[in-house]
Nucleic acid binder design. Structure first.
Lengths: 141, 141
DNA sequence: ATTTATATTTTGTATGTACAAACAAAATAA
DNA sequence: TTATTTTGTTTGTACATACAAAATATAAAT
């Protein structure tokens, strides 16, 4: 069958892996009550209280509008608080978020262990580094 | 700042690349009037007229429910036709789809050329192969 | 032949994400 | 000091995708 074009297309293969690892990540993060991106957002905020939304969007490589939605949800769950500083919005973790932190870190570790077991430690590390490097190149067009 | 955990997490890096390459792919596929996944779906159907939805979902690594939605849309655009063969649904390309094919192939080529120019031919090829191999390992849990 | 089990598809619902436009505040220039 | 531009955020809307449950249709077993 004439379907080799899929396996040679970076768009397809990158998203294919994205779907597979997202499913796994959602399973591992289930105990935290958050999906993985929200968990990472909380880790960033807890590691730099008062970080601006702009910085958060940049670090997470998502658009500002998406970040607004994320912060909306975490604020509704009383996990972060906004404090407007002029036109920029600063984000702070709540006590509740800090209490969740260890569970989030554990989920990250479990996820890491799980895919490492399947891919091998070396291959996983190399792949992750390659993905970072390639993303950086593509993001600048 | 304490944000290294992002760069070492395969979930994050895979989806980061996914977002970057998806944006690029959407730009290159714009002339076809389709988003990239729909273009590839049409290529599969044109390459194997009468292929079942189940097979299509497998080849594209998406869930059957997502595939149903995709075929719904392409059917509404008169690009494919369904023919129920018992419990399975067979999908056929229309004339209109066949007329689009060359434009879709061209978009794929343009996309390929574009990211290859940024990543280098060798690196792009290796990355794509790694992504395929890793997806295969992760999809089986 | 009727019931039961199995495989495929569809539907309802939810989520992550983006773009474009609107809005608000700040910085710069006149 | 007022007018213009830039920067950061939010809102409306749309789309790709998934899961769980329902529907449909075949095949298997009694």
């Amino acid at each position: 069958m004439d379907d080799g074009f899929l396996q040679t297309c970076l768009f397809f293969t990158a998203n294919r892996l994205g779907r597979a690892i997202t499913k796994m990540a959602e399973e591992e993060f289930a105990p935290t009550g958050l999906s993985p991106m929200y968990g990472y957002l909380i880790r960033l905020v807890a590691g730099a209280p008062g970080i601006s939304q702009k910085e958060l969007a940049e670090k997470l490589s998502i658009t500002p509008s998406t970040l607004t939605r994320f912060v909306d949800k975490l604020e509704a769950k009383r996990l972060v608080e906004r404090k407007g500083q002029g036109k920029t919005v600063l984000v702070y973790p709540t006590k509740k978020a800090e209490e969740l932190l260890e569970s989030i870190r554990q989920a990250s570790r479990n996820l890491h262990d799980r895919y490492e077991a399947l891919l091998g430690a070396d291959a996983a590390k190399r792949l992750t580094e390659d993905l970072n490097a390639s993303s950086a190149l593509l993001e600048r067009h």
